[in-house]
């Protein structure tokens, strides 16, 4: 009988039980009265605050602001990573000149560059876009380079025998071979970009989810802080899910055979 259940229900049952158990535990901890509601408001209070903020449009406005910033920065980071990875494989010697530079910036958390970027660019959109680009670029660049260099040389040999031009070799063999790595890099980078924008908005913004949390903390509204954290988690998961859908759509049948 278990196998007759719809797959959607089977897939969602366990997570729903987990969430309900956590809410129950949270409710019990608050009911005991040992922790001040200022430090940890009850789930009911957080739920009421969430509904109030949702009705007023406050949440949606901040989510859209953060989302727009992530998409813009992520798009630019992808374009840069792709073009530089193409350059890296077209001119292999360039790796020797850029390896140290890339390793250095890969090790520097983008958030640590915020003071410098504020000095250079102010607290406008430019600073936040640069933070997202820095956060998203490196995982994507490294994944794309790996994809471009880990093709099967036997397939390239086959294509060469059939007199394929270098451009055709790239478009028909190297690029499709790299698709799984590129998609994986995009997915990882999107997570990094989402985390970076929240951090950047907490320091240099007057809108967005990061700013909302910080402002709520300054106003001693712990319930709003928790609502903000929950919304960030949900929005990040939705972001990842949307990219997953896009990947499945682009990869078509390949996604069903381990290409996703």
């Amino acid at each position: 009988m278990r196998n007759d259940r719809p797959p959607l229900f089977r897939g969602m049952l366990a997570p729903i039980i987990g969430i309900l158990a956590l809410l129950l535990l949270w409710h019990l901890v608050c009911s005991l009265g040992h922790i001040s509601p200022y430090v940890l408001p009850s789930p009911q209070k957080v739920g009421q605050t969430f509904l109030k903020m949702a009705r007023s449009g406050e949440i949606l406005r901040d989510v859209l602001v953060s989302f727009r910033r992530v998409i813009r920065g992520f798009g630019i980071a992808f374009l840069l990573a792709f073009l530089l990875a193409v350059f890296r494989i077209a001119v292999p010697v360039s790796e020797r000149f850029t390896a140290a530079f890339i390793q250095f910036f890969r090790s520097v958390p983008p958030i640590s560059l915020i003071p410098l970027l504020i000095l250079w660019c102010g607290i406008g959109e430019q600073t936040k876009t640069i933070i997202i680009i820095l956060a998203a670029f490196f995982p994507m660049y490294l994944a794309i380079v790996k994809g471009f260099t880990s093709y099967d040389p036997k397939l390239l040999e086959m294509a060469r025998v059939f007199s394929c031009s270098p451009l055709r070799l790239f478009l028909r063999v190297v690029l499709p071979s790299a698709v799984p790595d590129i998609l994986l890099g995009m997915r990882t980078s999107l997570g990094y970009a989402w985390r970076a924008i929240i951090g950047a908005e907490m320091v240099a913004a007057s809108t967005g989810l990061g700013h909302m949390i910080l402002f709520a903390q300054q106003m001693s509204r712990t319930d709003k802080v928790i609502v903000g954290i929950l919304v960030i988690g949900i929005a990040g998961s939705v972001n990842d899910w949307l990219l997953g859908c896009l990947i499945r759509r682009l990869a078509g049948r390949r996604a069903a055979h381990g290409w996703d």
């Binding site: 036997k154 397939l155 040999e157 086959m158 025998v161 059939f162 007199s163 028909r172 063999v173 499709p176 698709v179 390949r254 290409w259």
Partner: peptide, 15 residues
């Protein structure tokens, strides 16, 4: 010359 090669292994593009 227009040369084709059938290798020992098929060498098909998996995608």
């Amino acid at each position: 010359q227009r040369t084709a090669f059938v290798f020992q292994e098929p060498r098909l593009l998996p995608w």
